[in-house]
Simulated assay, not measured.
Amino acid sequence: MNSNIRGNSPFVNSSSSLESSEFDEWLEDEIEAMDIEEQIIINMIARNNYVIHHLLTQQSDQATMAESPEKVNLIPTEATSENFGDYGQIIEASSDGVPFGPNDAQLDLSRGIPRLYIMRLKDQPFRFSKITHHASVTQCLGSIGGNVWYLGLAKPSLIEDGDRERVGDNIESGSDGHLYAPPAVEKVRVFRFSGPKFVKLKRGTWHAGPLFGESSMDFYNLELANTNDVDQTTHDFKKNNGVTFRF
């Protein structure tokens, strides 16, 4: 604030011949300046309070979604070569000696060392709230013994080769720096797999599972040696969208 009015008035040692109207005019200017400075301070305080309130409201909304998420019920669809094309491939038995063709898994293992192993999973009930993709590999999964299992899925949403304009501002950065659009709640599906077949997921296909009814199941898994270390990008629907899925 202007300090002239607090003992530094230019009229303190002035001649008494100065007219009172000059002092009144000076005083009026000082008060007006003080009012402007006070209003600026008030506006700054009000804006800070608004920002704090907005941040607290966001945190409260996220906490509420996490504590009381909406439960979305999904109906599983039996996976076939015809209905699975947006997510990858269904590979079924073929006769020995048949040459390589479009019905075989079209693999991309070029970005690292391939890893083929048997994965044992336990307690994978029919519900999920997180979904993951791998940006660098076409992952293959199949149950040992052909038992029934399920995957929660959403289409790949990797942003590559000029896709940024198509997606707009809804862009996030993945585990290794790649760009993607988060999966939408309404685009999530559940597929059922049974019998002697395996699934090849496209690069970037969002997946939750395998999920199953038994206490444990074994799956063969083809990915890269470092997939679990550097290529795991996860979207949390419970935290970000306030929903969980079940079937």
Rank of each mutant, 00 (worst) to 15 (best):
N147D: 06
R120P: 12
T64G: 02
P69S: 10
P69H: 01
D61F: 03
A105Q: 04
D108P: 06
N73V: 11
D108S: 11
G112R: 05
L74G: 06
Q139N: 03
L121E: 01
L141M: 11
P156Q: 07
L116T: 02
R127N: 07
V98W: 00
N73M: 12
I113L: 15
L141E: 01
Q106D: 09
C140D: 06
G97M: 04
Y117N: 05
A66R: 13
V137C: 10
D123G: 07
S94N: 13
K130N: 05
A135P: 06
E78W: 00
L121T: 04
L109Y: 07
V98R: 13
A105V: 02
S136M: 06
R115C: 12
E92G: 14
I113G: 02
V98S: 14
I144W: 13
T64Y: 07
L121V: 13
L151V: 11
L107T: 09
F128A: 00
Y117C: 05
L116M: 12
S94T: 14
M65Q: 11
S136Q: 05
L121C: 11
Q124H: 05
T64E: 12
T138D: 02
E82K: 04
T77K: 13
A93Q: 13
T138N: 04
P69C: 06
S136R: 07
V137T: 08
G97L: 02
R120T: 15
A66N: 12
A63R: 13
D104A: 07
N83R: 08
L158S: 01
L153S: 07
N147K: 06
D86T: 07
R127G: 03
Q106W: 14
Q89F: 15
V98H: 04
P125N: 05
S95V: 10
G88V: 10
A66D: 11
D86V: 08
Y150M: 01
S110K: 10
